[in-house]
Design a protein around this nucleic acid. Sequence first.
DNA 1: AATGCGTGTAAAAAAGCTGTAAAAATTGTC
DNA 2: GACAATTTTTACAGCTTTTTTACACGCATT
Lengths: 234, 234
Amino acid sequence: MDTLKSIIVVIEDDPQICRFLRTSLNANGFSLFEANTGEQGLVEIATRKPDLVILDLGLPRLDGFAVIHKVREWSSVPIIVLSARSQELDKITALDAGADDYLTKPFSIGELLARIRVSIRHAAQFKDSTETVFCEGELRVDLARRLVTVGTHEVHLTPIEYRLLSALIRHAGKVMTHRQLLLNVWGPTYVEHDHYVRIYMGQLRQKLEADSTQPRYLLTETGVGYRLACSEGL
Amino acid sequence: MDTLKSIIVVIEDDPQICRFLRTSLNANGFSLFEANTGEQGLVEIATRKPDLVILDLGLPRLDGFAVIHKVREWSSVPIIVLSARSQELDKITALDAGADDYLTKPFSIGELLARIRVSIRHAAQFKDSTETVFCEGELRVDLARRLVTVGTHEVHLTPIEYRLLSALIRHAGKVMTHRQLLLNVWGPTYVEHDHYVRIYMGQLRQKLEADSTQPRYLLTETGVGYRLACSEGL
DNA sequence: AATGCGTGTAAAAAAGCTGTAAAAATTGTC
DNA sequence: GACAATTTTTACAGCTTTTTTACACGCATT
């Protein structure tokens, strides 16, 4: 996913600005998904798992501040706010609610692109803060290349399997609750579906463990969640 | 914990803005260190290890862009750029060089503070979680990883066993009454079931103590409750 | 010595959680 | 529009944990 284009969700109701962003950002190698309302925006963020969100503060119905709060309940995706309002209070409120940057219309596309790069740089730093390659026993996961190997054998993972494994690696050694995993992998509307985690954990074990009935990497913490074994830092 | 003040290095040659920042930021609980040139700024950053840097782009001698590049060779401390220049190219150059934000003078102090909070929030996310390991004799509990070891041996605890031990650790050295423990572990509807505490305390002793009939860690305070031994000074 | 109280063990029954398989629905691709 | 891959739904067997139940111990008081 890192070698591919960065994915951006744009939440904006003004069709003119939408068109402007679409052409500018596509020309600069981003994949865009658009939403015209706050609700739709939340759905897009949950399903597309974007690398960045561009949010207009002046939305009908569910307003921009509410969107920021909702997203921050489960995701740390960078959010850049666009607004016609240049009042100090709007800026402060949005930034303190969890937005990462705030641009006042009219803005220049060059500056927007530069600020997008800053935000994505931040997120990347957080991602591979540990390292881009996770190793534990025979298991090796190259997060930059999206490559998983057991011993010398390369293993193919489906998108969800890979996201699940990534989430565990980001918290290697720590227990992740079912809820945390569901939020991270499936999004906030799935927090009830504990079964999914079990099913996919089983599939990961089939693919990664020598003996899936006696796992060495993907450990169950009954009643709590799962943990990826991590010999470092004991 | 955020009990300590955040440290900010300000690199700025205009004495008027210096004074303005000094009063505003001190009033908001930051420790300030000032530098009037780029070289001096680099020294301050290296020695003070600040949580944030505020940098004026229009410096004499070593200019702002050069400072950003130099700092980014070895540090990822957040840098907020101030500038009288509002040209798009300056912004883009500074941001792409590694700055985290860019404000054009004149700026409002409220917005600056909000953007400082954003940057420090980012940096905090990057830092690893706090020291959360309880140690006493052979017993070791890593609260962040939910990992319990006795000597070299890892011990598996059920959810309730772990919650009980956590509650005792949070009050290490002090007596906790049956009532307190029941409230903490089982919730307010279970306050009558004194028995549960005894049963689970017994199970914890079986798992953690060398001789469960003569406990070293999980001590009974007859008629009152239980206490976790704690040799460290309070 | 017997009683009552607080305490510690053990082992059942009940409740809840986990792992697997496989069918049905969905998605993406040509 | 058909095909392959993947995700979601469904069902069930097996296991772990919690709760319930029963009983033994020590110790101070009667």
